[in-house]
Design a binder for these strands. Structure first.
Length: 219
DNA sequence: ATGAAGATTGCCT
DNA sequence: GGCAATCTTCATG
């Protein structure tokens, strides 16, 4: 069952925890790959200094200023894509939820093949299931999400990129934890990041990495 | 026109 | 733990 657009027509901080356990699926000529989301992060848009929408509408972030229930895909560090779900469609709000990690529940072999592409494949260790979509750029690579899907409607069955309701595991939803985002002074009291406590697919804590800053990181 | 930083990842020592 | 890869966006001259 696809998630209705109304689900996304709320502030991103409310949508984010509800997205945990939901399923993102991308159907291509190669097949279908689906992930159950285990880690997300909310961005508030115009009022959020860390958001791409903070300084207004540009060609890159234009989708964030459009209706909710669409994918905002951006290219970063010269080689990676990240995907967001656009929330709250009112003009000027432009909030979104970054999909940071998930567990592959369909198309694992295809996902691994996409993640294994590289200059050296022979002698390379097989990528474990937990690492296939562990991290925002890895998730996009496993699902073959690129700029061509920027603006894709995830609420209609005819779209190749869709979001479905999860299995609704109550035991798992009880393990949702959150933490403040790092490096943002405004609204520091709001927990921006949400993840399943102890889930092996939640992205790694990197002490040296920008973004985590050594605080408030998943275990 | 030019430069610096970025919602990251993987490989190096 | 450190850094290169690689390119878009934004700020400054």
């Amino acid at each position: 069952m696809l998630i209705p657009r109304d689900f996304f027509a709320r502030p991103s901080v409310e949508v984010a925890p509800d997205l945990l356990g939901c399923v993102l699926e991308h159907e291509t000529a190669d097949g279908l790959v689906a992930v159950e989301l285990t880690e997300v992060e909310a961005y508030a848009g115009r009022s959020d200094p860390a958001s791409h929408a903070y300084r207004g509408k540009t060609r890159r972030n234009a989708v964030m200023f459009g209706p909710p229930g669409h994918a905002y895909v951006y290219f970063t560090y010269g080689m990676h894509f990240c995907v967001n779900m656009v929330c709250l469609g009112e003009q000027g709000s432009a909030s979104a939820v970054l999909l940071r990690a998930g567990a592959i529940i369909a198309g694992e072999d295809l996902a691994r093949a996409r993640r294994t592409r590289g200059p050296v494949s022979e002698g390379r260790a097989r990528i474990s299931s937990r690492d296939l979509a562990r991290g925002p750029a890895r998730l996009c690579q496993a699902l073959d999400i690129d700029r061509s899907l920027d603006g894709a409607d995830v609420c209609v069955a005819s779209s190749p990129l869709r979001v479905r309701a999860g299995a609704g595991n109550p035991a798992r939803s009880a393990k949702i934890v959150s933490g403040p985002r790092v490096g943002v002074s405004s609204a520091a009291e709001i927990p921006w990041r949400f993840w399943y406590d102890g889930d092996p697919t939640v992205s790694l804590y990197r002490p040296g990495a920008r973004g985590y800053g050594g605080r408030a990181a998943p275990p």
